[in-house]
């Protein structure tokens, strides 16, 4: 191995000597390493690394902060959506009626309407539609009028308490759309109802205080 290396070095020198012809030029003196510049370079690099690390940490903090804000926003939106959904379902809660009657029954039905009243008060952009329904027993045409009367009496209950009439439209389905297709008192009781739907301003709903 040593021998082989020496040989090939020797050949290389010879070839070089033949190729150059004249004497080899004086090589420029290698610059003496400046101990100061080495230190400066090292310092520069260290400074860059430190700066890098500082920026990284700031970025990390910012990212974490952004994530936190995003998460909080998402959570807030989710809370808001949940509240909106909850309020919406309160708005949509039905009220029921006695056979061939359109008066609001004190008790459960007025509680349901009280909820709607408060919701309409704190959500001034909210518009609703009340649709009256009947059971199958009255005559078909009469039930259209009765369903309408049921819708009107819920609207009057709300407007009497300060809700503007133009925020509430009324419709009647008569006996055309039962929720329970049965032919017994249980089904009839469910079918005699006012349904409430949101027609505008329901994208984001506020829950009344104390609810």
């Amino acid at each position: 191995m040593k021998l082989k290396f020496a040989m090939s070095l020797g050949i290389a020198i010879m070839v070089a000597a033949v190729a150059c012809g004249g004497g080899p030029p004086e090589p420029p003196p290698a610059p003496e390493p400046d101990p100061d510049s080495i230190a400066r370079e090292q310092a520069r690099r260290d400074s860059i690394a430190r700066e890098q690390a500082r920026e990284d940490s700031v970025r990390r903090v910012q990212e974490l902060e952004e994530q936190r804000i995003r998460r909080e926003r998402e959570e807030a939106a989710a809370r808001e959506a949940a509240i909106t959904a909850e309020v919406r379902s309160m708005v949509q809660a039905v009220i029921n009626f006695d056979f061939d009657k359109s008066n609001i029954r004190p008790g459960v039905d007025t509680e349901v309407l009280e909820q709607k009243l408060s919701i309409l008060q704190v959500n001034p952009a909210l518009m609703i539609e009340i649709t009256g329904h009947c059971d199958e027993r009255g005559s078909d045409e009469y039930n259209m009028a009765l369903g309408n009367r049921r819708a009107l009496s819920a609207r009057r209950w709300l407007t009497d308490r300060g809700i503007a009439e133009n925020r509430i439209t009324v419709r009647s389905m008569g006996e055309e759309q039962p929720v329970d297709p049965g032919h017994n008192e249980e089904a009839w009781a469910k079918n005699r109802r006012d349904a409430f739907a949101i027609t505008a301003g329901g994208a984001r709903l506020v829950k009344p205080a104390g609810m």
Binding site: E141, M144, N148, E165, T169
Partner: peptide, 9 residues
């Protein structure tokens, strides 16, 4: 005909 609405039937 019968007209049914906000003012009754």
């Amino acid at each position: 005909f019968t007209r049914i609405g906000g003012e009754g039937s």
